[in-house]
Structures are given as structure tokens and as C-alpha cells.
């Protein structure tokens, strides 16, 4: 869309300081060192936090992007990305129409949602065998 002429001055409200981002980074650091010591994974749900735009930006900058990115196309569209710190993951869930439905930071080796569950694998075995049998027949 074309923007109207900007002859009207805008007075944006001063952004609140990004206190939440700092607190989050401290929590992530603590959780990661705990995970390194005793393998205790940790999840932080960002959707429940009062993040200002500045917070989000700061978080993006500090966490950065790492080597791995995974897309899950199931009921929702989920994007799993490792941050520049191995073991710290960002997991974002979106509706098919693109609206955000939840966002987490997970501190673990591989986020839970990526793993294939035993039940799913079991069903796959059955399906695969059935498909093979069909093919052979």
C-alpha cells in the first residue's frame, strides 16, 4: 500500500526499556549451565511474557541464529531453530494463515517436538509393511 504523505508529525511514545530481555538472557544462561551439568531440559514460554518490541529485537540480536533449522508442517506450521548457542532452541508455532500461536525457547539437545514418538514409529512400521505388501502383490 502507498503511504500517505508524511506531513503529519508523529510523536511515538517512548519505548519501555528492555528489562525482560535481559532477565530472559540470564535465565537462559542459568538453564544452559544446569543442562550441561545434569541434563535437565528447560522450556521458557515467550507467549506468556510481556515482551516489548525492543525486548524481542534484543532477544533476536543476542540469541542470533545457529546451524540448524527445522520446519514441521502438521496441524500448525512450526519452525524450530537453533540459536548461536548450541543447545538453545527457538520454537515458533504459526497458524496456516501466518498468525503466531505460541513461541518457546527450549534448552535441550533436540526439542521434544522434533522427535518421532514411539507410537508414531510403531504406526509407521505397520503402514510401511502394508505398503510393501501391496507393492509386492
Amino acid at each position: 500500500m502507498s503511504r500517505p504523505d508524511r506531513v503529519i508529525p508523529i510523536h511515538p511514545a517512548p519505548a519501555p526499556p528492555s528489562v525482560v530481555a535481559d532477565a530472559l538472557m540470564r535465565e537462559i544462561a542459568a538453564a544452559l549451565s544446569r543442562y550441561a551439568q545434569d541434563g535437565q531440559p528447560h522450556v521458557i514460554d515467550l507467549s506468556a511474557m510481556p515482551l516489548s518490541e525492543d525486548d524481542t529485537q534484543r532477544l533476536d540480536e543476542q540469541l542470533g541464529t545457529g546451524e540448524v533449522a527445522i520446519e514441521i508442517r502438521s496441524l500448525l506450521y512450526t519452525r524450530v531453530e537453533e540459536t548461536r548457542y548450541a543447545g538453545v532452541w527457538r520454537v515458533r508455532h504459526e497458524d496456516p494463515d501466518g498468525s503466531m500461536r505460541g513461541e518457546q525457547i527450549e534448552i535441550t539437545d533436540i526439542p521434544e517436538i522434533v522427535r518421532a514418538s514411539a507410537a508414531d514409529i510403531g504406526r509407521s512400521v505397520q503402514r510401511l509393511c502394508a505398503d510393501r505388501a501391496e507393492e509386492d502383490a
Binding site: D45, S47, A48, I72, S74, L75, L76, T78, V91, H93, M100, R101, G102, E103, Q104, E112, I113, V114, A116, S117, A119, D120
Partner: peptide, 16 residues
């Protein structure tokens, strides 16, 4: 649907 879809639902409900 797989368990992944289930985890997505849980995440969305948590967020809601």
C-alpha cells in the same frame, strides 16, 4: 496425525 501435532496443540493452548 502424529504426536507432533499434539505438541503443537498444547503449545497453542498454552499460549492462548
Amino acid at each position: 496425525l502424529t504426536r507432533r501435532a499434539f505438541l503443537q496443540v498444547c503449545a497453542a493452548v498454552t499460549s492462548a
